[in-house]
Write a protein that binds this DNA or RNA. Sequence first.
DNA 1: TATGGTTGTTAGTCGTATCTAACATTTATA
DNA 2: TATAAATGTTAGATACGACTAACAACCATA
Lengths: 126, 126
Amino acid sequence: MAETVLSSGLEDYLECIFNNIEKNGSVKAIEISKELGVSRASVTDALHRLAEKQYINYERYGKIEITKKGTEKAKEVIDKHVILTNFFETILNLNHEEASENACRIEHVITKNAFKNLKEFTQQHK
Amino acid sequence: MAETVLSSGLEDYLECIFNNIEKNGSVKAIEISKELGVSRASVTDALHRLAEKQYINYERYGKIEITKKGTEKAKEVIDKHVILTNFFETILNLNHEEASENACRIEHVITKNAFKNLKEFTQQHK
DNA sequence: TATGGTTGTTAGTCGTATCTAACATTTATA
DNA sequence: TATAAATGTTAGATACGACTAACAACCATA
């Protein structure tokens, strides 16, 4: 139980779930499917894996709910996403879309320290 | 044939192969295995996949040779690795090891533009 | 040159992540 | 409320990338 490491892929699903619940109060698998550009079947798989690791509560045909653990994780990922996007926009002068694209790729792999220093650097040079 | 996209994993193998050939004139599977921390069997698998995509020439029990295509790709990856390591060391003040670790993770996912701008930025601020 | 140690390969397994096609359930509406 | 459309699930396939265990080939040396 209680895995501490989440693959890039699952982090993306979790991020999407969190954002949709924040915005609309709920999420549907088909929304995740469309936003992430994957099949409905892949979403079902991912929901199983996330539920198994207790990042969400989920039952067959049931409502998708995010747990406390899931919320914390999602916020972490989103925090990284925002800071990284900001870095690529303001420091490296990329347009928002490409900045976000790079953030999305890097947020899953950058180390804690590197992110911390990048965050400080960005704050000091804005 | 002739795949243009190479997975992170295979890029690591190719980088390792190139570096060893540069340094010693040849590579052995067991060296790759030790440097990348994977089993000898995984190396054999990777060699098959790299050969299939024509980044290396390779035959059962034979010498591992890197092709022109492989050399170009390896140089690209290594260029990214060096610049990124430099960025994390000089701009974000990480020690060499952690800088290199982050470079290794990010070199496979950063976009062309983002890398170009990061390279220029690093050059201007050293 | 026979033999043992080193290195390389194969076969089989596992987990992740994706897909399509077929089927099940839910929801909306005629 | 019956039916159709939308949504969700399952089963089965594929690919990647890793592993162990067993076997094959190579090479050094006694």
